[in-house]
């Protein structure tokens, strides 16, 4: 299964022309819940044809303060109404002292954070009565880290017993920005928890810094890392192409989707050929 991050920028084209064929779409609930009119109508149309995966922005499981349960209730309602297959969120914080920042900030890799974030993820899962998938975000500077990133992530995954949304591009970006080996990082993740994969492009803004813009095509080394991951996992999970800015023609996005399908099929075939 391969999907596309569904955006208003190409929503009409996507519905009218048959240029991009995918198995599912993904949206941020925040952009489509509690609305009416034109977009509601269009969203209903697209939901007739595609299963929905969701990727939240504002729940902020990494916030130091309490979860916003009234917001979570609305999310729950939205997931129910749209029959969403997956609800995923980011391992980051986007709200602090109750002020939304509308962006993803890195959580300090500390023991305290492991505790408060794991507790929150557990509460969310209890409240929604389903497991959620948490995405490792790209980040540009560590913040007062007491432990390694991989230790931080693994501790949270284990304590909260949630699923992992593996954004392969994010791992590539982080490995580049913080100078570690991306494959080695993936080797140390509990891959059995991966329920969903994201793929995207990025932008190199300085000699030693990549910003995760989702505004470019996927680059070859990220495809390579994707193949490595699938082979290592040895099983298929839904894969999403994220393209948020600088959106090309849909037929060009189709090429990327095709590429992802080919790589996945090959990687799994090799795996099974090897096993037999």
């Amino acid at each position: 299964m391969t999907g596309i991050g569904f955006r208003k920028d190409f929503a009409e084209e996507f519905l009218q022309e048959n240029q991009l064929k995918v198995d599912f779409i993904e949206v941020a609930p925040e952009n489509w819940m509690g609305i009416g009119g034109y977009w509601k109508k269009l969203f209903k149309e697209v939901l007739k044809d595609y299963p929905l995966y969701t990727h939240g922005l504002s729940l902020s499981v990494g916030s130091p303060e309490e979860l916003d349960f009234s917001f979570l209730e609305k999310i729950k309602q939205f997931l129910k109404e749209t029959n969403a297959r997956i609800y995923s969120e980011h391992l980051s914080f986007s709200k602090c002292e109750n002020a939304h920042l509308y962006d993803l900030l890195p959580i300090p890799f500390t023991e305290q954070a492991v505790k408060h974030v794991s507790e929150k993820i557990k509460s969310v899962q209890d409240f929604l009565e389903r497991k959620i998938a948490i995405e490792i975000v790209s980040y540009y500077t560590p913040v007062a880290a007491e432990m390694k990133e991989i230790e931080f992530i693994n501790a949270i995954l284990q304590e909260s017993d949630c699923e992992l949304l593996l954004d392969v591009n994010n791992i590539y970006v982080n490995a580049f920005n913080h100078q570690y080996d991306a494959k080695n990082f993936i080797d140390h993740l509990p891959l059995e928890r991966v329920s969903y994969i994201h793929m995207a492009g990025h932008e190199k803004v300085e000699e030693d810094l990549i910003i995760d813009t989702h505004g470019q095509d996927i680059i070859d080394p990220v495809y390579g890392l994707f193949e490595y991951t699938i082979r290592k996992m040895g099983r298929s999970v839904p894969v999403l192409l994220e393209r948020d800015f600088n959106i090309p023609e849909l037929k060009d996005l189709q090429k990327e989707v095709n590429q992802l399908n080919i790589i996945k099929a090959n990687a799994l075939q090799k795996k099974f050929a090897h096993a037999s």
Binding site: L105, Y140, V143, N177
Partner: peptide, 29 residues
């Protein structure tokens, strides 16, 4: 304290003024 660090990072993002956030790369922040 983790909470304090997070608050400082958030307030830096809101104001553009760094109020003593340590353990970060200034160039990247």
């Amino acid at each position: 304290q983790t909470h304090k660090i997070q608050s400082r990072l958030a307030s830096f993002c809101r104001s553009g003024e760094n109020s003593g956030l340590k353990g970060v790369s200034k160039g990247r922040l």
